[in-house]
Amino acid sequence: MSLLKLDSLTKQFGGLTAVKEFSTGLEAGELCALIGPNGSGKTTIFNLITGIYTPTSGTVTFNGQDITGWRPDRITACGIARTFQNIRLFKGLNVLENVVVGKHLRLKSDPFSATFHLPNYRREDEAMFAEGLELLDSLGLSRLAYEAPTSLPYGEQRKLEIARALATDPKLLLLDEPAAGMSPTDSEELMVFITHILKTYKLTILLIEHQMRVVMGICPRIIAIDHGETIAEGTPEYIQNHPKVIEAYLGVADYA
């Protein structure tokens, strides 16, 4: 049974159909890329999965449960985490606190025992920070734990966003253009980083990228979309040579 199943998802904004009858499935442990030109509906699909948008029609099934139209925080609680195309870190909190916020949804103590720092809360709080530090450490960010997130270099901010998403203990991680704005070398390094966390945290990853070259090396399966519709799905070689993909990216040769 697949971990995530999208069944003819459609999203319309007024007269514009951003996503049209999109269906796919993700097996546990898979690393899959979603590619397509600008405005082809990639981020909209992410927003539909994570509950930021409610689909006009179609269903999202995660782990055998229909999560269509759930609130984003409940979807995160059942095991889907995401990052954003434009970095969205919490500027008022330091790096470690940014990660620890991701642990908040697993907190059991009620606000009362938290406010009065009762022993059960103190234990949980300490554990949250210890786990947060451990996570930062395993991603090579622990030396920055007490820095302001805005003072980090761009690449590290991207990594911190991934670390923060990992703090929620996800089964499925959605990465929205993690390599956006990075140099080719940096993006290759990031892809290695992504394959590393895929194995270490036993994740399933769906990632958006619009430069095909970046994902070719690491993703065994690629879904290409244009105008909200799947145009091709398969191995990198298959996608690379698919006429519709070439058409979507380069346009049709017209020698008439």
Partner: peptide
């Protein structure tokens, strides 16, 4: 507390806070 941090997260970025499971 953790609740306070969640509130600050909401202040800084509602969308990101909700995506991290903060109600």
């Amino acid at each position: 507390t953790s609740y306070g941090r969640a509130m600050s997260a909401i202040r800084d970025d509602e969308v990101a806070a909700e995506a991290l499971g903060v109600s």
